[in-house]
Amino acid sequence: MDRLISLEPSKVVAVRVEPGEKCRGKLTLRNEMHTMPVAFRLQPLNRARYTVRPQTGIIPPLAALTLEIAYHLSPGSTLPEAFPSSGDSFLLHSVVAPGAAVKDAPSSLDSVPLDWFVAKKKQVFIDSGVRVTFVGSAVLARLVSDEDPSLEEVREVLERSDPVWRAVDSVDPATGQTLLQLAVSRGRPDLVQLLLEFEPDLEYTGGSGRTPLEAAAAAGEALIVELLLARRASTARSPASAMGPLHLAAAGGHAEVVRLLLARGTDPDEPAADGRTALHLAVEGRRRDCAKLLVEAGCRVDARGGAEGDTPLHGAAAAGDEATARLLLRRGGLACKGARNARG
């Protein structure tokens, strides 16, 4: 036999780091012996940084015991010295204890004599492979915010996180943004694609006031927009935002994003918070390519919006854009030509 105790779920302990909470993880030891109890001792090599509870104990045959491993942050620090992987390791000693009493399990915890683990007459098994990796929102937010984030490290932390935690929806305490919003703001489609594998909340607005799709549309990130649309992100304006994805793309002159949104069935006449449509915004910004796409998609050229109740034609006139004015007149005819705003 090469071991007395097996480790669950693995030899790598996931220690969760969350703002304002104790940093801790769990490791389950299972006695592989069918008839005899086994005594154990788990020691951190860096005793100033870690506390193990219980550190020693006796496990009945084929039974299991879960330990808590706590990490102590340096004063004033919110993150471990190294993450997500740590170079810190532990020594697990185990020895058969045939005469040990295990009827009252709690009494055997942290009370095993240390000389039991001295290899004189007994065979003591020593496992030095126990390691720590740090997970949690603080770790993920820092990894994603790095100038050159490691996809492998982000994936490792997400995979080692308990699904109940919804780690992929972790929020950066500094910005109020989710991991997905951070990836969008960095213009990283590869990182966005990785996060989408873990099914994040696509409609969260948080501190930015925009959904990931709205943020990507505003930035003209066509590939990211396409990835989000493939996951059925809503193309409608979110309640927290003054403008929806189509408004933001049109205002920014991002024709390819406008094309993608329209192809996905986005309502071209959806009003922004002030009543203006995407066509209003494209015309006012002299975004001719976007205006043409919207007109071809059937956007109403006589829609009114803004404080003065302007039509897109008013915007073209104010911008001195004769070419766009002609386009609107061809589509709106006399009704558009005779439209008046609040100023007449």
Rank of each mutant, 00 (worst) to 15 (best):
F40S: 04
L151M: 08
T35R: 12
H34D: 14
A82R: 02
G285F: 11
G338H: 14
N341K: 08
S108T: 15
A183T: 07
S234E: 10
G129L: 11
E308I: 00
V102N: 03
R186T: 10
A307Q: 12
D148Q: 08
S86F: 08
S111G: 14
L229V: 15
N31K: 01
C23D: 10
S161K: 03
A119Y: 02
G285I: 11
N46R: 12
L196M: 06
V132K: 03
K11C: 12
L143F: 06
L248M: 14
L143S: 04
T211R: 09
A303T: 01
R155P: 00
K103D: 15
A282K: 07
P212W: 07
F90V: 13
D110M: 11
I69L: 15
T324Y: 03
Q181I: 13
A273L: 10
Q55Y: 02
G87M: 05
C290D: 10
D162I: 02
L92T: 03
E18N: 11
A183P: 04
S150M: 11
D148N: 10
R264K: 14
A39L: 06
M1A: 12
F134C: 07
L92I: 01
E284L: 14
S10E: 13
K103H: 12
V95E: 09
V135F: 06
R259F: 02
T205P: 08
C290T: 06
S74N: 09
D321E: 06
C23N: 13
D321N: 05
L195Q: 04
V96M: 14
V96N: 04
V52Y: 11
G187M: 05
L279E: 06
S150V: 13
V144K: 12
L227W: 09
L313Q: 10
K120F: 00
T175G: 01
D146V: 00
L260K: 03
R264D: 13
I59L: 04
E8W: 04
R210G: 03
L151W: 02
A307S: 11
A291V: 00
D310G: 05
